[in-house]
Nucleic acid binder design. Structure first.
Lengths: 219, 219
DNA sequence: CGATGTAAGGTGACACTGTAAAGATTGATC
DNA sequence: GATCAATCTTTACAGTGTCACCTTACATCG
């Protein structure tokens, strides 16, 4: 259902091959882009399918022909988000040898995606507005997850540690995901005691350092 | 219908003085309760102020007189959630001496609140639909946070560890918050490789154990 | 070629939503 | 007993998602 034949995640320019007239050219991508824009401006709560159609310059029912449903469009956005995460993760560990350093790089990449792809991230884990059973979505999610898991597995193998791969992977993932969601609250807390909000990058480094120490010294 | 007389949280016990007729008696609490009900049924995305009013048995504009706004009602629900978290946290560590054990108990309590108070939790960190600047909300949040921070501080003091209190507190919090949000995905992943979804309680124990080991052996 | 089928997009309608303004009802206070 | 503030209702309006149906453009084949 979530279609688009040629999809390089946000096509370079606003090509619109057959731009004029009835046929838009690449409406699915244009709608995804507009959707992300709306979410980033008004939040997932203020999302509006009609506003998306308006920004794409089409009638308010046009999205239905490609995504069936508001849930369908948002699911497609989430899928695009996981694909982008997959790419970013691979790029993050590229050229780094030490798995522990790779872990830090992955964390940094993960958290930075929450700001560079804020619209996508605001939707990717919202089980109430996307279709979590969509097989393509699950595939994209698993692919992104695979990168983190491989790094963890390599670290455990290299250092002959006796911890469970899944548990460690999930811990690292949870800590980063939690940091993303809690960052605003953390800023409030720091501000409430007169401190300035902490640098996120520094926090990531400390988090992974603490976790790696824990993994290596697991009892 | 949904007009139970007594309400545990807030308001000592003005039990629906004028039950029938024009004045509801304790509409704010009834609305909060209905709101949580709706969110738990349809998710935060399917929330409807009119539906809430309907379930409380009042006209659709009645909520505005108490909460001003849909955002106001949801903010109040979030506030109630943080208050409940505060109470649950205090109860969780009661009778436990070892700070590390207290940490595990706090984690268990935190994650279990995500199911016992699912409606509240689905709203507490949604910066796009609640008013994060609300001073009462911030106060409630800080109070709940204080319990976790105190436990971490005591552990660090007791064992003369040389790690930053804030960093450790934020790590523990992030890991638990991430686990809450990622639990569905984790289940999908486990299921995708034929395993049965892991027990959450066991995960919490492993997470805290790994983190505590990391904190104690911080380099 | 022209006819025809199909994908892509548009119109109009319907029930539902949040919010604002103004009216109705109650209890309390002087 | 009159006034006032709180509480709730009625009415109205603009905006929303989705449905059934209509229009346009393109490609394919006789």
């Amino acid at each position: 259902m979530t279609s688009a034949t040629t999809d390089t995640t946000t096509t370079g320019g606003t090509s619109t091959s057959t731009g004029d007239g009835y046929h838009h050219g690449d409406l699915p991508n244009a709608l995804r882009r507009a959707a992300v824009e709306v979410i980033e401006e008004r939040g997932a709560g203020g999302f509006s399918l009609r506003e998306v159609a308006r920004r794409a310059g089409v009638s308010h029912t046009a999205p239905a022909h490609h995504f069936g449903d508001m849930r369908g469009l948002l699911t497609s956005v989430a899928e695009e988000g996981f694909a982008a995460l997959h790419v970013a993760s691979l790029a993050a560990i590229d050229g780094i040898d030490d798995p522990a350093d790779q872990l830090t790089a992955l964390g940094r990449s993960y958290v930075s995606m929450a700001t560079t792809h804020r619209g996508h991230c605001e939707v990717m884990f919202r089980t109430d507005i996307i279709d979590t059973d969509d097989p393509e979505l699950q595939t994209c999610g698993l692919e992104a997850y695979g990168v983190l898991e491989a790094v963890v597995r390599r670290m455990i193998d290299d250092e002959h540690l006796s911890v469970d791969v899944d548990e460690v992977t999930w811990l690292c993932w949870s800590a980063m995901q939690g940091l993303v969601q809690l960052a605003p609250k953390i800023a409030v807390i720091a501000q409430a005691r007169g401190n300035e909000p902490p640098e996120v990058d520094a926090l990531i480094e400390r988090f992974t350092a603490l976790m790696v120490d824990g993994i290596r010294n697991a009892s």
